[in-house]
């Protein structure tokens, strides 16, 4: 079973008001984002619930959900660590940083630590190229990364 909690319900009211009444499927992405924020990933049950609210099928919700890379359809760690691997970060040595993070966390790209704390991902350009190399932890930017800064930033997530 999936149900939006009270905080989400308050947000949903605001979200639905943004779009014309006969176009409520526009709220699909924002609702998926809320469901993920609540559960850590988008569960099949959440897709059913969202579909019912927006008058679309669960299969439709899934087809949209799986198009966008920021939605997870499997459980991830409490903190998702993303390293940009695109050109500006590459020119500034992101490969070494990724390797460093893999060693530090003892996992490979795409994996989650056994204690379910960190998931490590490669990410395409995060639009902070002048502050490369760039890392995000749960969508918060950390820029001009170095191995020391990785220690410091990851250590701050308890």
């Amino acid at each position: 079973m999936f149900a939006f909690n009270d905080t989400s319900e308050t947000r949903i009211k605001k979200i639905m008001a943004k779009y014309p009444e006969d176009r409520k499927v526009s709220a699909l992405l924002p609702l998926l984002t809320l469901a993920q924020a609540q559960e850590g990933y988008v569960t099949p049950e959440a897709m059913v619930e969202i579909g019912q609210r927006l008058d679309v099928s669960p299969a439709y919700v899934e087809s949209v959900c799986t198009f966008y890379t920021m939605y997870y359809t499997k459980p991830v760690g409490k903190y998702v660590v993303k390293f940009c691997i695109n050109i500006s970060c590459h020119l500034n040595g992101c490969d070494n940083l990724m390797e460093y993070a893999e060693k530090k966390l003892g996992i490979k790209e795409g994996e989650t630590t056994p204690d379910k704390k960190f998931t490590l991902l490669k990410e395409e350009c995060l639009a902070a190229c002048t502050e490369a190399p760039v890392m995000q932890v749960n969508n918060k930017y950390h820029v001009n990364m170095t191995p020391e800064k990785i220690d410091q930033v990851l250590g701050s997530y308890k």
Binding site: N86, E124, C125, A127, C129, E131
Partner: peptide, 11 residues
């Protein structure tokens, strides 16, 4: 939707 690699002015 600033996503063009190298671009970060809008941000």
């Amino acid at each position: 939707d600033e996503s063009e690699p190298g671009t970060c002015k809008d941000r």
